[in-house]
């Protein structure tokens, strides 16, 4: 396994590296994740081909959490995210906007129409001529077909409907396409992932590729996978979207951040999602 440590790593991160135990490929200890005693979730998988020169094994963020936090995701009733999924279920079936349509009027039962959707997004959209995220598709439906206002990109309503849609793919492998017309977007996202930002001069890779499974003060660093998003965080007791998380990450490097829904974060979402190709969709997950 190739793990080059960044040469410019800051003192804080360097100290964490010394304190934390270095991870070896396939050597992150973790229990199995089975939800409701029936849905087996792949939380560890061989790295996808495009990542093989950098990582051998990919892990869901779940494996890095404490046993108490892990337990919250093993039963849907214990998972506090489900209260937001319940609300989104009502929203799915409730007409909104000038056309008087609900999601269900066009898409039918969410269990049927949205099965597998979360696993392949973000995805190239031929009509739009660009890569589109699930949130963009939701807002397109709202503004173009329902005559309703767009939801805030990373707001509570959007997070909840994404959790509901994502749940319909839970247990299926993440499988976003990075070839064909999506390739250029994916490459931009990859560039962003490895670009150091902010006063701390840290990239996504500084944390999540070179130093995962190490302790940064009291926090156990994950690989920054997004297969479980939207995620219910104990910290703020609500659903959080990947773009809101990206924003927080960039802010933590003390940089001006891109906005949720910005073209930059769309490219990053595609790239980060592709680093999790092979893990199960885990939506809605629970993290600290």
């Amino acid at each position: 396994m190739t793990r080059t440590r960044g040469t410019q790593t800051l003192a804080a991160l360097a100290a964490a590296c010394v304190l934390g135990a270095a991870a070896q490929a396939g050597e992150v200890d973790h229990p199995e994740l089975v939800i409701n005693g029936e849905t087996r979730i792949t939380v560890e998988a061989p790295a996808p081909d495009h990542l093989k020169d950098r990582l051998d094994t990919i892990y869901s963020g779940w494996v890095f959490r404490s046993k108490e936090t892990q337990a919250l995701e093993m039963d849907d009733f214990d998972n506090p995210a489900m209260v937001f999924v319940d609300k989104a279920w009502e929203v799915w079936n409730t007409p909104d906007g000038s056309e008087g349509k609900s999601c269900a009027d066009c898409h039918g039962a969410v269990e049927e129409s949205m099965k597998g959707v979360r696993a392949v997004y973000p995805k190239w959209n031929e009509t739009a001529g660009e890569v589109r995220t699930l949130a963009q598709m939701v807002n397109e439906c709202r503004t173009e077909r329902m005559g309703a206002d767009a939801w805030k990109y990373a707001g509570g309503q959007m997070a909840a409907i994404k959790a509901l849609i994502g749940l319909q793919s839970r247990g299926m492998p993440v499988n976003v396409a990075i070839d064909g017309p999506a390739r250029a977007t994916w490459e931009k996202g990859r560039e962003l992932y490895y670009t150091r930002t902010g006063q701390l001069e840290l990239s996504c890779a500084s944390w999540h590729e070179q130093n995962y499974d190490r302790m940064i003060r009291a926090d156990h660093l994950s690989q920054g996978q997004i297969n479980g998003f939207p995620v219910y965080r104990l910290k703020n007791a609500k659903l959080n979207t990947a773009h809101a998380r990206f924003k927080g990450c960039v802010r933590d490097t003390r940089a001006e951040t891109y906005k949720p829904g910005s073209p930059e974060f769309v490219t990053l979402e595609l790239y980060v999602a592709s680093r999790g190709n092979g893990l199960s969709v885990e939506t809605p997950s629970v993290r600290n």
């Binding site: 963020g61 944390w207 940064i216 003060r217 009291a218 926090d219 660093l221 994950s222 920054g224 996978q225 997004i226 995620v231 965080r233 910290k235 959080n240 998380r245 927080g248 990450c249 933590d252 993290r287 600290n288």
Partner: peptide
């Protein structure tokens, strides 16, 4: 009790 954490 540990403060914060990055999550994700």
């Amino acid at each position: 009790v540990t403060i914060g954490g990055c999550g994700g």
